[in-house]
Design a protein around this nucleic acid. Structure first.
Lengths: 205, 205
DNA sequence: GTCTATAGACTGATAGAC
DNA sequence: GTCTATCAGTCTATAGAC
């Protein structure tokens, strides 16, 4: 956390102190580049160029490249869990499943780069980082699994294998990020509605 | 490291001519390593070590690393299309959809490494290779889309948006490769049956 | 066809000036 | 906090001996 303020002429130089702006810009640039080209293909020099600083300056904000990747993924997953925790649920298992479906699609379409990294760069995590990230992913999966299990118990869903259904639904929903384009023929609301139709029918008793 | 020779017996040396064996072994090793660590993270030296030759020898079989990746992906997708073309279909759109579902799961579970590469390494393809690979992927998608469209026309499916349904079903089915393990509690046949249950219900009229 | 050796370029990360 | 300069290591790909 930074709390700097008050410089007499903060705009006049191209070199000097920019801690409040360089940190976030570094993370944004890295996220965009990692998503586009892959973590292993992106160099620290490319990131620095995007931010507008020299490469050495980046290391004021990150321990190393690996730590940067782990932080991006952890921040994304924690934001995902927090947002779902704050999301209003519908009534009963069916309402909860609809809420989850629409939330998942909305949240993922708003952060395509972060989603891409979270799903594609797991194998580039060092083992000590992997465990924690994987645990967060698991926690999110469990949120859906709990909904499906409750619906199964209540008799509104018919799911011979709840765990498999959980993974199938998440894979189907997450797939939207691979093809959806804002300029396309379908609005996000429409897309969410169409996916909800399929999910509802797929799990129905 | 290697001394060698004493070349009285042609089979007794570790250096010499091995064209029939080195080529396939190179492709197998690259596929395994690319899937495990990612194309950009794997070095030609790692591949050579896995094959059991020095790095220079690899270039008798490939033009460069990029060409190796493109060849692996093209071979996988062409095999996929050929195998589906040879697959027996069931009766009507419902039979065709069941055939596609079971085929897709079986084929993908038999080649986890190739599947992983085909889905994850698209962004590491040079533009001139990307176009052709993407066209093959599209052709496979169209196979499913045609089935869904026929079922919609026949009134056995209810799909407000056939294209979206196509992508949703493929994403759901392909997701099986991210979690299935042979040592797990479910057989491949059982898994295919459970997915088919969900697909059938999701598209039903 | 495979080897050794190397060119030539690039990598992540650090030291010290300002 | 950012800069310049650089280290020490790695990379792909090639040349020429065998």
């Amino acid at each position: 956390m930074n709390d700097r303020s008050d410089n007499t002429d903060p705009m006049a130089r191209t070199s000097g102190s920019h801690s409040e702006i360089t940190g976030p810009r570094l993370r944004e640039a890295a996220q965009r580049l990692f998503a586009r080209h892959g973590y292993a293909s992106v160099t620290m020099r490319q990131i620095a160029a995007e931010v507008g600083v020299q490469v050495g300056a980046l290391y004021n904000y990150i321990p190393d490249k690996q730590g940067l990747l782990a932080d991006l993924m952890r921040a994304h997953l924690e934001e995902l869990l927090a947002a779902w925790a704050a999301e209003p649920r519908g009534e009963g298992p069916l309402g909860a499943l609809e809420a989850f479906t629409r939330f998942h699609i909305r949240f993922h379409l708003e952060r395509p780069d972060a989603v891409f990294i979270a799903y594609m760069e797991l194998r580039n995590l060092a083992p000590e980082n992997f465990a924690g990230i994987e645990a967060l992913r698991k926690r999110y999966e469990t949120e859906l699994e709990d909904i499906l299990r409750a619906g199964q118990a209540a008799g509104v869903f018919d799911l011979p294998d709840t765990k498999l259904a959980t993974l199938a639904v998440i894979a189907m929903l997450t797939g939207v990020t691979t093809w959806y384009r804002d300029a396309g023929r379908l609005s996000r609301e429409r897309v969410a509605g169409l996916y909800w139709d399929m999910v509802r029918k797929a799990v129905a008793a």
